[in-house]
Amino acid sequence: MTQAVRVVAQRDGVPIYAYPSDPMTPPVSVLRFGPGGLPEKGRHIHDFPILVYLSATRSVLVVAAGQTIDPIWAIEQTDCVAVFFDPAALNDGARSPWPTWRNHPLLFPFRHGHTGGVLQLVVPSHRKRFWDNTIESMEAELVDRGEGHREAVLAHLTLLLIDLARMADDVVGDLRRSGEPLIADVFAVIERRIAEPLSLSDVARELGLTPGHLTTVVRRRTGRTVQEWITERRMADARALLSTTDLPIAEVARRVGIADPGYFARLFRTTHGASPRSWRA
């Protein structure tokens, strides 16, 4: 495992690794390894999610938390990149036990239940460059440790998790299967109308609920408000457009449902600590 990860217990002789949550440890770690270079060659358990990306084959291995993993599948692989992260960091950095953070919508792929704790997916060929560039950007942030690097690396991680959710199956489908039909309906409305003006009242009206009741339910189930999820979805699309296109800032704003470029720039700066132009650079 990485230096940040440590053994905290054992289960039937199998070591259990934890990802520390402290100001000195970044919320995300990236580790590259080749054949025979596994950080942990024996069976083990970890209480946090892991993504393993193989650029040559465009494979993504979604490694579930809490299950016994036998990494023999990776012994002969070349150019593997493992992304370790503290899932609680996705909830504004607050430390949360597994039963709480596992309900985060972007972490549903890690609850796949596949034998051996590993789900293998394939990145579409047109998304390979995005995965390569995003992981390289994460590595650069972690090496430079500049101001705002924690927020930046979490932003990159969020982009990967959104792409992963779409690859594994849409977030809405996962929410419905997990017994969260109302939350699924909220995400379905946000997904369908994200490119147009959208507010809490709009979502509540479409679902036939009062804004106050909807806010209470969504906050209780996900830890965030409907408006925060709308903003998160807009910012995810904005980051993707800024990093993969040369579109003017005003056009990026329009495509994510914000007519006023000035308001978009202020919202982006509030969310990321940098202007859209600076973030793109």
Rank of each mutant, 00 (worst) to 15 (best):
M1D: 08
T2S: 13
V5Y: 07
A9T: 12
Q10F: 05
R11E: 13
P15Y: 03
P15T: 07
Y17K: 04
A18P: 11
Y19P: 06
D22M: 13
P23E: 10
P26T: 12
R32I: 03
G36A: 13
G37Y: 11
P39L: 12
K41R: 07
G42C: 02
F48Q: 02
F48T: 05
T57H: 00
S59G: 07
A65R: 15
G66H: 09
G66V: 13
I72D: 06
I75K: 10
Q77D: 03
F84P: 02
F85H: 14
P87Q: 08
A88I: 08
A89W: 06
A89Y: 07
G93R: 03
A94T: 05
H104P: 03
F108T: 04
H114E: 15
L121H: 09
P124G: 10
P124I: 10
F130V: 12
W131I: 12
D132F: 05
D132I: 14
N133V: 06
I135Y: 02
S137W: 00
M138N: 10
L142V: 12
V143Q: 04
D144V: 08
G148S: 01
H149L: 08
R150N: 11
L157S: 04
A165K: 02
M167G: 00
R176M: 12
G179D: 07
I183L: 14
V186L: 11
S199W: 03
V203G: 05
R205G: 08
L209H: 14
H213P: 15
T216R: 15
T216E: 15
V217K: 14
R220G: 09
G223F: 11
R224S: 10
V226R: 09
Q227T: 11
A238H: 04
L241P: 06
T244K: 01
T244F: 01
L247P: 00
P248D: 08
P248I: 11
I249M: 15
I249Y: 05
E251F: 12
R255M: 11
R255G: 08
D260I: 08
A265V: 08
A274M: 10
A274H: 04
A274K: 04
S278L: 00
